[in-house]
């Protein structure tokens, strides 16, 4: 199976006049196979969205990026090469469908601009067909509507239609269900999974919602303070988490089964991006911490899992 996206040692600094102000990404290593889904899980500020922004080549000019991004047959690509293929070979759907559409243009006008950019002919027919295929019953009305006239669920479907106007190689879904009600979000997830099966694109699925990520992903990467701390097949990561952070995160999910007041908690807070981190970023909150943890942790391979931790043993 061929690899669609391979990111090695991606690091991002923000600099002002050459002085590094913070380093929100400190080592992202991920790989997505053709037609498969990689889920990135992490809490606020851990660098999930920034990773997506870097892949799309949309980092602001104050950001300095190191490491490699390899994409499909293009090999290693830089920011300007990415600009040429984004929106066609890589497309993206976003967290808040209400703000992702321009409020003063109709959905039809916005989809048409994207369709033109992709060189699609017979735009109207393709748009109608596409909107139908994402489960919008009345595509003509949707095309003539302004964003504020449609519900969040409908807009997210329209966004998916826009992303899939022509089948991309990779779809990046950045918290696509977070702004939606749970049941609507689930419909959207099911739709994305169905379309993926039918059209065969690879997907990078980013969310703080562990349940949603587990549901759609083949592989999961858990990210903490700008670094991937654990990767592996979705089912394995969910059923036997290895990194202390992953364990803590899964233990923190409340449910009727867990006795009240006994949720696993991780003391403290996610370090701010301004914190200067040495060694393992999770060490100060980690109950398994040992002396070595103030040095950069090694990547330990456990079966089909990679874990960045001094404590776990292969």
């Amino acid at each position: 199976m061929s690899t669609v996206l391979k990111i090695s040692e991606l690091e991002v600094d923000f600099q002002i006049n050459g002085v590094i102000t913070n380093t929100p990404l400190r080592g992202i290593n991920i790989e997505i196979k053709a037609g498969k889904t990689l889920g990135i899980v992490g809490e606020t500020g851990c660098g999930k969205t920034l990773t997506a922004t870097a892949i799309m080549g949309l980092l602001p000019s104050s950001a300095v990026q190191r490491g490699q991004i390899e994409f499909a047959d293009h090999g290693v690509i830089n920011k300007s090469e990415m600009a040429a293929i984004r929106g066609s070979e890589i497309t993206m759907i976003f967290q808040n469908p209400q703000s992702a559409f321009n409020p003063i243009f109709t959905i039809g006008a916005q989809l048409t601009m994207v369709a033109q950019r992709r060189g699609i002919s017979d735009i109207k027919a393709i748009l109608v067909a596409r909107l139908e295929s994402v489960g919008l019953r009345d595509p003509r009305r949707v095309l003539e509507s302004y964003p504020h006239e449609l519900s969040g669920g409908m807009l997210q479907r329209a966004m998916i239609a826009m992303a899939l106007l022509s089948t991309p190689t990779l779809l990046i879904a950045d918290e696509p269900t977070t702004a939606l009600d749970a049941t609507i979000g689930d419909q959207v997830l099911t739709l994305i999974a169905t379309l993926q099966k039918r059209e065969g694109f690879a997907m990078l699925f980013i969310s703080h919602d562990v349940t949603a990520v587990a549901k759609v992903s083949d592989e999961i990467a858990v990210i903490y303070a700008g670094r991937v701390v654990e990767t592996g097949p979705a089912h394995d990561v969910m059923s036997s988490p290895q990194h202390p952070y992953t364990r803590g995160l899964l233990g923190a999910i409340p449910s009727a089964e867990k006795a009240r007041g006994t949720l696993v908690t991780i003391p403290g807070n996610v370090p701010s991006v301004l914190t200067n981190i040495k060694g393992c970023a999770f060490a100060e909150r980690c109950s398994a911490r040992i002396d070595k943890c103030d040095q950069e942790p090694p990547i330990v391979e456990i079966g089909n899992r990679s874990v960045a931790c001094w404590v776990v043993k292969s």
Binding site: M56, L58, A83, A84, I85, R86, G87, S88, T91, M92, F94, A100, F101, N102, M113, V114, R117, M162
Partner: peptide, 8 residues
């Protein structure tokens, strides 16, 4: 951001 991400 979306418009840029779509290569416009």
């Amino acid at each position: 951001k979306v418009a840029r991400a779509y290569g416009l």
